[in-house]
Amino acid sequence: MSEREQIFGRIREALRNPAPVPGAHHGESLPPVTEASAAPHIPEWLPLVGDSEAERLELFKKNSIELKADFRLLDSEEEVHAQIAELSADWKRVATHRNPLTDLVCDRIDLPILCTDGGYDAAEMEECDVGISACDALIAQTGSVLVTSTSAGGRSLSVLPPHHIVVARRDQLLSDLPSAFALLEERYAPDYPSFISFITGPSRTGDIERILVLGAHGPKVLTILCW
Protein backbone atom coordinates (compact mmCIF):
# COMPACT_ATOMS: atom_id res chain seq x y z
CA MET A 1 0.00 0.00 0.00
CA SER A 2 1.35 3.43 -0.89
CA GLU A 3 1.96 6.07 1.78
CA ARG A 4 -0.91 8.06 0.36
CA GLU A 5 -3.28 5.14 0.75
CA GLN A 6 -2.08 4.49 4.29
CA ILE A 7 -2.69 8.10 5.29
CA PHE A 8 -6.14 8.05 3.71
CA GLY A 9 -6.86 4.77 5.49
CA ARG A 10 -6.04 6.34 8.84
CA ILE A 11 -8.12 9.43 8.02
CA ARG A 12 -11.20 7.39 7.08
CA GLU A 13 -10.82 5.23 10.16
CA ALA A 14 -10.50 8.32 12.38
CA LEU A 15 -13.55 10.01 10.88
CA ARG A 16 -15.86 7.12 11.74
CA ASN A 17 -16.70 8.91 15.00
CA PRO A 18 -18.76 12.03 14.38
CA ALA A 19 -17.53 15.24 16.01
CA PRO A 20 -19.68 17.86 17.76
CA VAL A 21 -20.52 20.93 15.65
CA PRO A 22 -18.47 24.04 16.31
CA GLY A 23 -19.51 26.59 18.87
CA ALA A 24 -21.45 23.99 20.86
CA HIS A 25 -19.97 24.26 24.34
CA HIS A 26 -21.04 21.98 27.16
CA GLY A 27 -23.09 19.78 24.86
CA GLU A 28 -25.49 22.54 23.77
CA SER A 29 -26.61 21.90 20.21
CA LEU A 30 -26.48 24.34 17.35
CA PRO A 31 -27.74 23.91 13.80
CA PRO A 32 -24.75 23.56 11.47
CA VAL A 33 -24.59 26.23 8.76
CA THR A 34 -23.16 25.02 5.49
CA GLU A 35 -20.38 26.88 3.75
CA ALA A 36 -22.51 27.45 0.69
CA SER A 37 -25.11 29.34 2.68
CA ALA A 38 -22.50 31.39 4.56
CA ALA A 39 -20.59 32.77 1.58
CA PRO A 40 -23.07 35.50 0.57
CA HIS A 41 -22.97 36.87 4.12
CA ILE A 42 -19.21 37.29 4.39
CA PRO A 43 -19.31 40.91 3.10
CA GLU A 44 -21.77 41.74 5.90
CA TRP A 45 -19.27 40.68 8.57
CA LEU A 46 -15.99 42.08 7.24
CA PRO A 47 -15.08 45.74 7.86
CA LEU A 48 -17.51 48.17 6.27
CA VAL A 49 -16.89 49.73 2.84
CA GLY A 50 -19.09 52.52 1.45
CA ASP A 51 -21.25 52.06 -1.64
CA SER A 52 -20.07 54.91 -3.85
CA GLU A 53 -16.83 55.21 -5.79
CA ALA A 54 -15.91 58.31 -3.78
CA GLU A 55 -16.21 56.37 -0.51
CA ARG A 56 -14.12 53.52 -1.87
CA LEU A 57 -11.39 55.92 -2.98
CA GLU A 58 -11.48 57.67 0.38
CA LEU A 59 -11.11 54.35 2.21
CA PHE A 60 -8.28 53.21 -0.04
CA LYS A 61 -6.51 56.49 0.65
CA LYS A 62 -7.00 56.16 4.40
CA ASN A 63 -5.73 52.58 4.39
CA SER A 64 -2.70 53.57 2.32
CA ILE A 65 -1.72 56.18 4.87
CA GLU A 66 -1.97 53.63 7.69
CA LEU A 67 0.05 51.13 5.69
CA LYS A 68 2.65 53.74 4.76
CA ALA A 69 1.98 53.14 1.07
CA ASP A 70 2.38 56.03 -1.34
CA PHE A 71 -1.01 56.32 -3.07
CA ARG A 72 -1.39 59.01 -5.70
CA LEU A 73 -4.80 59.60 -7.20
CA LEU A 74 -4.38 61.43 -10.51
CA ASP A 75 -6.68 62.92 -13.10
CA SER A 76 -4.95 62.50 -16.42
CA GLU A 77 -2.21 60.68 -18.29
CA GLU A 78 -0.27 63.93 -18.31
CA GLU A 79 -0.24 63.92 -14.53
CA VAL A 80 1.01 60.33 -14.55
CA HIS A 81 3.91 61.31 -16.77
CA ALA A 82 4.71 64.24 -14.52
CA GLN A 83 4.74 61.99 -11.45
CA ILE A 84 7.02 59.48 -13.16
CA ALA A 85 9.36 62.26 -14.24
CA GLU A 86 9.59 63.37 -10.62
CA LEU A 87 10.00 59.85 -9.21
CA SER A 88 12.62 58.80 -11.75
CA ALA A 89 15.08 61.59 -10.95
CA ASP A 90 17.68 59.27 -9.44
CA TRP A 91 16.85 55.95 -11.04
CA LYS A 92 19.47 54.26 -13.16
CA ARG A 93 17.63 51.20 -14.28
CA VAL A 94 14.00 50.16 -14.48
CA ALA A 95 12.29 46.76 -14.54
CA THR A 96 8.83 46.32 -16.01
CA HIS A 97 6.65 44.12 -18.21
CA ARG A 98 4.52 44.68 -21.31
CA ASN A 99 1.02 45.92 -20.63
CA PRO A 100 -0.92 48.92 -22.02
CA LEU A 101 -0.58 50.81 -18.73
CA THR A 102 3.09 50.08 -18.11
CA ASP A 103 3.85 50.83 -21.78
CA LEU A 104 2.23 54.19 -21.39
CA VAL A 105 4.42 54.99 -18.40
CA CYS A 106 7.66 53.48 -19.64
CA ASP A 107 7.52 55.04 -23.11
CA ARG A 108 8.69 58.31 -21.66
CA ILE A 109 11.41 56.88 -19.43
CA ASP A 110 14.80 57.40 -20.98
CA LEU A 111 16.71 54.77 -19.02
CA PRO A 112 17.77 51.17 -19.58
CA ILE A 113 14.67 49.02 -19.13
CA LEU A 114 14.57 45.34 -18.21
CA CYS A 115 11.40 43.71 -19.47
CA THR A 116 10.37 40.45 -17.80
CA ASP A 117 8.32 39.10 -20.72
CA GLY A 118 9.96 36.00 -22.13
CA GLY A 119 12.39 35.64 -19.20
CA TYR A 120 15.11 37.71 -17.57
CA ASP A 121 18.16 37.44 -15.35
CA ALA A 122 17.29 37.76 -11.66
CA ALA A 123 20.69 39.25 -10.77
CA GLU A 124 20.04 42.00 -13.31
CA MET A 125 16.63 42.69 -11.87
CA GLU A 126 18.15 42.92 -8.44
CA GLU A 127 20.21 45.85 -9.73
CA CYS A 128 17.13 47.77 -10.87
CA ASP A 129 15.97 50.72 -8.76
CA VAL A 130 12.33 50.16 -9.40
CA GLY A 131 9.83 47.59 -10.65
CA ILE A 132 6.82 48.99 -12.48
CA SER A 133 3.83 46.70 -12.86
CA ALA A 134 0.16 46.64 -13.63
CA CYS A 135 -2.28 44.76 -11.38
CA ASP A 136 -5.64 43.00 -11.45
CA ALA A 137 -7.37 45.20 -8.91
CA LEU A 138 -7.07 47.52 -5.95
CA ILE A 139 -9.12 46.67 -2.85
CA ALA A 140 -10.57 49.52 -0.81
CA GLN A 141 -11.38 47.45 2.28
CA THR A 142 -7.76 46.61 3.03
CA GLY A 143 -5.71 48.98 0.83
CA SER A 144 -4.40 45.96 -1.08
CA VAL A 145 -3.14 45.48 -4.61
CA LEU A 146 -4.09 42.21 -6.28
CA VAL A 147 -1.44 40.87 -8.66
CA THR A 148 -0.87 37.60 -10.50
CA SER A 149 2.04 36.28 -12.52
CA THR A 150 -0.07 37.05 -15.59
CA SER A 151 -1.10 40.60 -14.75
CA ALA A 152 2.04 41.89 -13.07
CA GLY A 153 5.03 40.53 -15.00
CA GLY A 154 5.76 37.35 -13.06
CA ARG A 155 6.61 36.54 -9.46
CA SER A 156 9.66 38.74 -8.79
CA LEU A 157 9.00 42.07 -10.45
CA SER A 158 6.75 43.25 -7.63
CA VAL A 159 9.03 42.08 -4.81
CA LEU A 160 12.70 42.09 -5.83
CA PRO A 161 13.43 45.78 -6.66
CA PRO A 162 13.49 48.14 -3.65
CA HIS A 163 10.65 50.26 -5.02
CA HIS A 164 7.44 48.87 -6.51
CA ILE A 165 5.23 51.12 -8.60
CA VAL A 166 1.75 49.89 -9.44
CA VAL A 167 -0.17 51.54 -12.25
CA ALA A 168 -3.95 51.17 -12.19
CA ARG A 169 -7.09 52.73 -13.59
CA ARG A 170 -9.79 54.02 -11.29
CA ASP A 171 -12.26 51.41 -12.47
CA GLN A 172 -9.94 48.70 -11.12
CA LEU A 173 -10.77 49.69 -7.56
CA LEU A 174 -12.97 47.04 -5.94
CA SER A 175 -14.79 47.37 -2.67
CA ASP A 176 -13.90 44.26 -0.63
CA LEU A 177 -12.09 40.93 -0.45
CA PRO A 178 -15.06 38.76 -1.54
CA SER A 179 -15.36 40.82 -4.73
CA ALA A 180 -11.62 40.37 -5.36
CA PHE A 181 -12.06 36.59 -5.16
CA ALA A 182 -15.07 36.81 -7.45
CA LEU A 183 -12.92 38.72 -9.95
CA LEU A 184 -10.16 36.09 -9.80
CA GLU A 185 -12.69 33.37 -10.48
CA GLU A 186 -14.34 35.22 -13.31
CA ARG A 187 -11.07 36.22 -14.95
CA TYR A 188 -9.04 33.03 -14.62
CA ALA A 189 -11.02 29.91 -13.56
CA PRO A 190 -10.27 27.11 -14.08
CA ASP A 191 -6.72 27.89 -15.27
CA TYR A 192 -5.34 30.14 -12.59
CA PRO A 193 -1.88 31.69 -12.93
CA SER A 194 0.70 29.82 -10.85
CA PHE A 195 1.13 32.86 -8.62
CA ILE A 196 -1.47 35.21 -7.12
CA SER A 197 -0.80 37.73 -4.37
CA PHE A 198 -2.59 40.34 -2.31
CA ILE A 199 0.03 43.01 -1.62
CA THR A 200 -0.90 45.15 1.36
CA GLY A 201 1.59 47.96 1.86
CA PRO A 202 5.37 47.88 1.45
CA SER A 203 7.36 44.95 2.87
CA ARG A 204 7.47 45.16 6.66
CA THR A 205 8.61 43.46 9.83
CA GLY A 206 8.10 43.84 13.57
CA ASP A 207 10.39 40.99 14.53
CA ILE A 208 12.71 43.11 16.70
CA GLU A 209 10.87 44.36 19.79
CA ARG A 210 7.65 44.57 17.73
CA ILE A 211 8.93 47.82 16.18
CA LEU A 212 7.77 48.43 12.61
CA VAL A 213 10.50 48.55 9.97
CA LEU A 214 9.72 48.85 6.25
CA GLY A 215 11.63 47.09 3.50
CA ALA A 216 12.42 43.91 5.41
CA HIS A 217 13.08 41.81 2.31
CA GLY A 218 10.80 43.22 -0.35
CA PRO A 219 10.22 46.81 -1.47
CA LYS A 220 10.70 49.59 1.04
CA VAL A 221 8.41 51.84 -0.99
CA LEU A 222 5.12 50.93 -2.63
CA THR A 223 3.75 53.64 -4.92
CA ILE A 224 0.30 53.29 -6.43
CA LEU A 225 -0.47 55.57 -9.36
CA CYS A 226 -4.17 55.53 -10.10
CA TRP A 227 -6.02 57.60 -12.68
Binding site: Y120, G143, G154, V159, P193, S194, F195, F198, T200, G218
Partner: peptide
Protein backbone atom coordinates in the same frame (compact mmCIF):
# COMPACT_ATOMS: atom_id res chain seq x y z
CA UNK B 1 -6.37 44.30 8.58
CA UNK B 2 -4.49 42.06 6.19
CA UNK B 3 -0.96 40.70 6.40
CA UNK B 4 1.59 42.29 4.02
CA UNK B 5 1.58 39.49 1.47
CA UNK B 6 -0.99 36.75 1.03
CA UNK B 7 0.24 34.69 -1.90
CA UNK B 8 -1.19 31.61 -3.58
CA UNK B 9 0.95 29.11 -5.44
CA UNK B 10 -0.75 26.66 -7.74
CA UNK B 11 2.21 25.06 -9.49
CA UNK B 12 5.69 25.59 -10.95
CA UNK B 13 6.34 28.17 -13.66
CA UNK B 14 3.95 27.36 -16.49
CA UNK B 15 4.85 27.50 -20.18
CA UNK B 16 3.83 31.08 -20.83
CA UNK B 17 5.09 32.55 -17.56
CA UNK B 18 8.36 34.45 -17.34
Amino acid sequence: ALTGYNSFYGGPKSGDEC
